[in-house]
Structures are given as structure tokens and as C-alpha cells.
Design a protein around this nucleic acid. Structure first.
Ligand SMILES: [Mn+2]
Ligand SMILES: [Mn+2]
Length: 555
DNA sequence: ACCATACACCCATCT
DNA sequence: AGTGGAATCG
DNA sequence: AGATGGGTGTATCGATTCCAC
């Protein structure tokens, strides 16, 4: 299964693949200077190109020459020379004290700062803290550390490399190691026949906007005061829905941060600026915390008239009665989730070894409970229904819709969470679900289980879905039930792909099943779990909640 | 699937 | 000394 | 006792190497 890489310059080959890919499909989105970079790169010697790529792939931009030892490259000095001429690498960068500390080992720090250091035993980070006041200037490496005969190199071209990586992958979370991991067979990706015109970006402005938001997010994550970051986040709504989603999400996270540091008015202000799902409820909550009950009440009423999701509706059922009370209105009774007593299981089990989970405990208990008939219980959570969905609808999910796939390393379509995901492949999904009206669905699911085994999918959990589990599921779960599960998933994939019960119990002799949510002491049903339980009850799908308590230990 | 969600475990407060 | 986290590599 | 909101920790290929503590 694991292949060997025969080319010692495999990483360079991969980098070149990206450059060629970009030059071929995205050249209209590049500046003359960027196109020039690509052309120049190809003219360099193999060793020089390899050294640059090694540096680009590694963390940070500063490297000691001794840390750039690669057999296939040989002399770093020789390989680096052309890069220095081009200005792509600085051979003698000015280093701040912080940067120097990142390059030196602790023993070397004592050597350099011996006289200034009070305690050589102190932690490196404390030494840095202590020296910051004294050494505020930047110097080059030999000035800091004359005894060293090493050089320090600094790559100068990370911005353009990040831009190219973003254009290729459509995100910045994937990096160049994707290639080698796929070559090694660690990740298998579906081969989608997308057209040569399929791209992750339509305009240079979109790329610039993405990079800008990304930098804002990094500054926020690094701890810069949110007020400073907010100044640079555009107040206007982006035309591109995808980018607007990213803008909204960043604002949401900043608002959450304000919430954590108890700056509720600031949080309210930021929640108000974004339409990220859930921000409205948080805004209502912030008004509540600021004792603005009238505003909270009126926003809650707007939300109740036009709820953004089932989840919001559910939260409003808790919020509104509370606000009525706070405002001194006549009480309206809070409606609580009601569980049919018949589908409630109470168990008192001996407290087990700390390593075993409650779900596993109940699973074993239920399997051993009824000796007279065959009972199998699997701990599946979301994995089973999602996997069956992913296998049945494989061709719909991986349909080559324009813009959904544009490089060879997608785990799923790029627009999976966009509101029109379903609409854009409606006929394919209708076709897939139609198979549940005959026994065709079992063939499709089994076929894809064999043919697509191990291939990354946003729905299929290959490690959970064993052959035994698949057989049990296909023989015990009626097609109609699968259709009901899948239809709700398709209504809102992001929201409805989770919250499914922990266990599934099969009675293979009766071709019957039941799903069971396990709750240990001190654990409660979550909102999304309640929504699935209600939905299943409404459609006569057998579900139960199993409450576990620890049985008294006999002393 | 945008270093994230999803899950369980834990606590404080209010009724 | 030994341990653990981060970085690197294929 | 229970409901509610809130905060936390865990997990991402796996082997090897380096370095701080
Ligand atoms: Mn669970
Ligand atoms: Mn559970």
C-alpha cells in the first residue's frame, strides 16, 4: 500500500507542478511580476530550485546554514548564490533579539550573553524577557554571534508562494505536503474529471480579499487588540458569498472573544455586524447581559418570525419565556423537550475502569443482556448514517460541477456548505435517493463500498464502517428509514450531519434495529441530538435515550 | 472542509 | 539523566 | 433536583530527530 518515492527531488517536482498548473490556468490573475517569478524559477539549477523549495516548505523564514543540510542539494552556499542575486533570499538579514533566540540553542545564548545573564539556568523564554529591554536593536548574525562560522538565510518570497498555494488549493490550510502524502497513499482522493476551466478563484480581487482577511485573522489569533484588527476588516458586505462567509465568521470569532473577556457591549456591536449563523442569538444574549431587555425582546421576536434555522428556533424557545419573565409579562410556559417514556432506558451499571467509555459500557451490556436472540450493538454516532449517505450519493457528491473541484486533492466539493449545494446537483441527488424505492440502493452502496474503499469523503468513515456493520445495516434498516435520515441531512448538511445517537442495536433475525443515545451521569441531551430525536419520533424511526447511573458498590 | 468542529466532562447559578 | 513538544520528512 | 449557560479538554500519517526543561 505504501509506495516509495524514487525521485530525490520529489518536492521540487511537486512545486513545479503547481507553478505550471497556475501558469496554465490562472495567468490572467497574475501580475507581470508574478509571471516573471515563475519564468525565472524554471531557469535556475536543480539544486538552487530545490533549496528554495525546501526553505519555503519549512516553518518560518530564517534558517541557519547548518540546518539546511540536504544530501541531494549539497553545498548550501553554492545553491543559495543565485537566489541571493535575485533577491529571493537574504544571506545576511538583520535579526531582532527575538529572531536570534529562535535560531540559537540555549548553550549558545549563554555564550553570547554570558555577561548580561543573571541566571544561565533560567528558562529560555525568561532569558529573552530579561534581555529585551537591553537589546532593542537589530544586528546581523555575525554581529550577534562573532564566534560562529555559520550563515543565516532569510527567504523573501513567502508572500508570492502563499498566494500561489492559495490559488492552487483554494485555501491556505493545505500545503505542499499534500502531494507526497497522496503519492504515499496516506490520503487517497477521488479522481474527479473536472474541466480545465474549473478554478478556485474568478478574480484577482477575490484572492486579495482572501489574503487580507487571512492576515486579519492571524493578527487576531496572535493576540493583537481586536479594536485594531476590526479597523482593517471591511465594514461592507462582500459581493462574493464565500468571502462574505469568511468575513462574517471572523467577526463572529472576534465577538466571541469580547464575550469571553466580558466586554458585552463590544461583543453585541460586532455580533450585529455579521450574519454568521448563530450571531443573532448571541446578539440577543448580549442584550440580555446588558439588561437591554426591550431590545432583546424585539430582536427575539423578529427572529421568531423569520428563524434562520431549526437550531435558532429551538434556542428561542428557551430565550423568549425568560425575556417575558424579565419584562414582567404574563408568564408563558417554557416548552420542554418531551421524550416518550417508552423510549427511555434507565440503567444502573457498576462504575467501570476509567479508560472505558459509557457508550462502550452500554454497548457491551446490551449485547450480553439477551442471550436467547442474536443482538448486535455498534457504537457509531454519526458515522453510520453519514457513511451510508456518502456511499449512496457518491456520484452526486463528486459530480464535476463547475468550481466544486479544481485540483486533485479535494476531500469533498468546495461548495459543500453553501446554501445552494443541493440545488446545484438536485437531479443527481434525486437520482440517488430514487434508488431507495427499489433494491438498487443496496447494490450502489455495496459497489461504492468496494470500489471507493479508503478514498477521502466528507461523509464516509472508512474506519467505522466494517463489512459486518454494513451487512447488518442493509438488512435491518428499511430503505424508507434511510430516505428519511438522508432527506433531513440534505436540508442542512452542516447542521444535520451530527447529533445522531451513539449506538445502533440490531436484531438480525427479526430484521429490526433501534438507535440509542447514551447519557452518563451529568451529561445532557444537546440541542442537535434533541432535534434528531424529535424528527425520528415523528417519522416512526425507533430511537431511545439510555440514562446511566453508577450502581452502588458493595463494600 | 477553511486550526476546526463534535463530543463528553466539568462548573456556577437560578428556580 | 529522562521526558515531552515541536519540527521535519517521506 | 433539574434546568440553563458557560467553560474545559480531546483529536487530526507515523517515524525520527532535536532541544528545552
Ligand atoms: Mn455521543
Ligand atoms: Mn451520548
Amino acid at each position: 500500500m505504501i509506495k516509495l518515492i524514487e525521485n530525490r527531488f520529489y518536492y521540487l517536482e511537486n512545486f513545479c507542478t503547481v507553478l505550471e498548473w497556475i501558469a496554465e490556468r490562472y495567468s490572467d490573475l497574475l501580475t507581470a511580476q508574478e509571471r516573471e517569478f515563475i519564468d525565472h524559477f524554471h531557469l535556475l539549477s536543480k539544486e538552487t530550485k530545490a533549496l528554495l523549495v525546501r526553505m519555503v516548505m519549512r516553518k518560518g523564514d530564517l534558517f541557519r546554514s547548518s540546518k539546511l543540510a540536504y544530501d541531494e542539494i549539497g553545498s548550501v552556499e553554492d545553491a543559495a548564490a543565485p537566489l541571493i542575486m535575485l533577491g529571493w533570499v537574504d544571506e545576511n538579514p538583520w535579526l531582532s533579539l527575538d529572531e536570534l533566540f529562535g535560531l540559537l540553542k540555549k548553550a549558545e545564548i549563554s555564550q553570547v550573553f554570558g555577561s548580561s545573564l543573571h541566571k544561565t539556568a533560567a528558562r529560555k523564554s525568561d532569558q529573552l524577557l530579561a534581555l529585551r529591554g537591553e537589546f532593542t536593536d537589530s544586528r546581523d548574525f555575525t554581529a550577534w554571534y562573532p564566534a560562529s562560522n555559520e550563515r543565516v538565510y532569510q527567504v523573501q518570497i513567502t508572500p508570492i508562494c502563499d498566494r500561489l498555494r492559495l490559488m492552487f488549493f483554494g485555501n491556505l490550510r493545505q500545503d505542499w505536503s499534500e502531494f507526497v502524502l497522496a503519492d504515499l497513499g496516506i490520503f487517497q482522493y477521488e479522481k474527479v474529471e473536472f474541466s480545465a476551466s474549473s478554478r478556485g478563484f474568478r478574480s484577482r480581487q477575490d484572492i486579495d480579499d482572501y489574503l487580507h482577511l487571512h492576515r486579519c485573522r492571524e493578527r487576531f489569533l496572535l493576540g493583537e487588540p481586536p479594536e485594531e484588527v476590526l479597523k482593517d476588516i471591511p465594514a461592507r458586505v462582500y459581493d462574493n458569498d464565500w468571502l462574505e462567509g469568511r468575513r462574517s465568521k471572523l467577526l463572529f470569532q472576534i465577538a466571541q472573544h469580547y464575550e469571553q473577556i466580558k466586554q458585552f457591549p463590544a461583543a453585541l456591536n460586532v455580533y450585529g455586524q455579521c450574519q454568521y449563523s448563530g450571531s443573532r442569538v448571541r446578539a440577543i444574549r448580549m442584550m440580555e447581559r446588558c439588561a437591554q431587555f426591550e431590545s432583546a425582546f424585539s430582536l427575539a421576536n423578529i427572529a421568531e418570525r423569520t428563524p434562520e434555522s431549526e437550531a435558532e428556533k429551538q434556542q428561542l424557545l428557551r430565550i423568549l419565556p425568560r425575556l417575558h419573565r424579565k419584562l414582567g409579562h404574563p408568564r408563558i410556559p417554557a416548552v420542554h423537550h418531551h421524550l416518550d417514556p417508552a423510549s427511555r432506558i434507565d440503567l444502573a451499571l457498576p462504575k467501570p475502569e476509567p479508560l472505558i467509555s459509557v457508550e462502550e459500557l452500554v454497548r457491551v451490556h446490551l449485547e450480553q443482556l439477551s442471550r436467547q436472540q442474536r443482538v448486535r450493538v455498534h457504537y457509531v454516532e454519526n458515522a453510520l448514517i453519514n457513511s451510508l449517505f456518502g456511499l449512496l450519493c457518491w456520484s452526486a457528491i463528486f459530480a464535476p460541477i463547475p468550481g466544486a473541484f479544481f485540483h486533485p486533492f479535494h476531500t469533498g466539493p468546495a461548495d459543500l456548505h453553501s446554501p445552494d449545494f443541493y440545488r446545484r446537483r438536485e437531479s443527481q441527488f434525486i437520482n440517488s435517493l430514487l434508488q431507495l424505492d427499489s433494491d438498487q440502493y443496496t447494490h450502489t452502496i455495496r459497489h461504492n463500498f468496494r470500489e471507493k474503499a479508503g478514498i477521502q469523503s466528507p461523509f464516509v468513515f472508512w474506519d467505522v464502517l466494517t463489512e459486518e456493520l454494513l451487512d447488518l445495516a442493509l438488512s435491518c434498516v428499511p430503505a424508507l428509514h434511510l430516505k428519511i435520515w438522508f432527506e433531513r441531512m440534505l436540508l442542512d448538511i452542516k447542521l444535520n450531519r451530527a447529533g445522531m445517537p451513539d449506538l445502533i442495536q440490531f436484531w438480525p433475525d427479526e430484521k429490526r434495529y433501534r438507535m440509542i443515545e447514551v447519557k452518563g451521569p451529568g451529561d445532557r441531551l444537546q440541542d442537535n441530538q434533541m432535534r434528531w430525536l424529535d424528527y425520528c419520533a415523528k417519522h416512526d424511526i425507533p430511537v431511545a435515550v439510555c440514562y446511566v447511573q453508577w450502581a452502588e458498590r458493595v463494600e
